Amino acid sequence: MVEMKIDEFVRKANRNSEIGADDNDGVISIFADTGDLLIDVPVDATNFLEVNWYNVKPVNYFSKHTREYLSALIDEFLQTPIDERFPEKKYRLVANPNSLEETGTYASRYVACIEDSMDSFSFVYGGPTIFSEKDLKQIEESHPNIAPAIEAMKERVNNE
């Protein structure tokens, strides 16, 4: 299955010296190295008909290699299921948000890991560990009784 996340599309487009790309408000904008806006690809587009091609001739802006590269990049992105395009959410688990006031230290503030065995689990406190949404879902499915606790402790991590 083809899979390309939005940030990966932007990163790959920006590797090419003739173009640049930005992700803004649900649209990936592609610019020529001159700064001219050429193409807008909505992040929820499913085919080339939904891509906004500005009134330009790509042949005037790009080499044949870049046109082929960009076309293949857009095609791969459009083939990716929409729900797979978005970056995976990441979280820290804040066990004791008032740990500094209560104990004078942050040592018990975060869950560093969740130890899981056949018949039990335990939260190990320590430094802030980043958990993916997928990992937390697996833990919640294995131990549904702690799902409310995990949901209550989630603190979204951005750009790490």
Rank of each mutant, 00 (worst) to 15 (best):
Pro144Lys: 09
Lys137Thr: 07
Asn96Lys: 08
Glu102Ile: 09
Ile130Asp: 06
Ala45Leu: 06
Gln138Tyr: 04
Pro58Ala: 03
Pro81Ser: 13
Ile19Thr: 08
Lys12Gly: 01
Val124Ile: 15
Met153Thr: 04
Val157Met: 05
Leu49Asp: 14
Val157Lys: 04
Lys57Gly: 08
Phe77Tyr: 13
Trp53Phe: 14
Gly20Ile: 00
Ser122Ala: 14
Glu151Cys: 06
Tyr61Val: 07
Ser142Asp: 12
Tyr106Pro: 00
Glu18Lys: 08
Phe9His: 07
Pro97Ala: 06
Glu18Gly: 10
Lys12Gln: 11
Pro144Ala: 10
Gly20Asp: 04
Ile130Gly: 02
Ala13Asp: 08
Asn55Cys: 05
Asp7Tyr: 15
Asn55Phe: 08
Ala72Arg: 09
Ser142Phe: 07
Ala95Tyr: 14
Gly127Asp: 13
Ile30Phe: 03
Glu18Leu: 11
Ser117Thr: 15
Pro128Glu: 02
Asp44Thr: 11
Tyr106Asn: 10
Val56Phe: 15
Thr80Ile: 13
Glu140Asn: 11
Glu76Leu: 11
Val51Ala: 02
Asn60Tyr: 08
Val59Trp: 01
Asp75Pro: 05
Ile6Ser: 13
Glu3Cys: 09
Asp83Ile: 09
Val56Gln: 05
Phe77Val: 05
Ile30Tyr: 01
Val157His: 05
Asp33Met: 00
Asn158Glu: 13
Lys64Phe: 09
Asp119Tyr: 13
Glu101Ser: 11
Val51Leu: 02
Thr34Val: 01
Leu49Arg: 12
Asn14Val: 01
Ile19Tyr: 02
Tyr69His: 12
Asn96Cys: 06
Leu38His: 02
Ser63Phe: 05
Ala45His: 06
Tyr125His: 11
Glu141Lys: 03
Gln79Leu: 14
Val157Arg: 01
Leu78His: 14
Gly26Ile: 02
Val111Met: 07
Phe31Leu: 03
Met118Val: 07
Ile19Asp: 01
Thr103Ala: 11
Glu76Asn: 11
Val111Cys: 08
Lys154Ser: 07
Met153Glu: 08
Asp40Ala: 00
Lys12Val: 09
Thr80Lys: 12
Asn24Tyr: 04
Asp7Pro: 06
Asp36Ile: 04
His65Lys: 13
Ala107Trp: 07
Arg11Gly: 08
Cys113Gln: 14
Glu76Cys: 07
Thr80Asn: 10
Asp119Met: 10
Asp44Gln: 11
Tyr110Asn: 09
Ile139Asp: 01
Ala149Asn: 11
Lys134Met: 03
Asp33Arg: 02
Ile114Tyr: 04
Ile30Leu: 04
Glu160Gln: 11
Leu70Gln: 06
Gly35Ala: 00
Glu8Met: 11
Glu140Ile: 12
Phe121Pro: 07
Gln79His: 15
Asp75Met: 14
Glu50Ser: 01
Asp40Trp: 03
Glu160Trp: 06
Tyr91Gln: 01
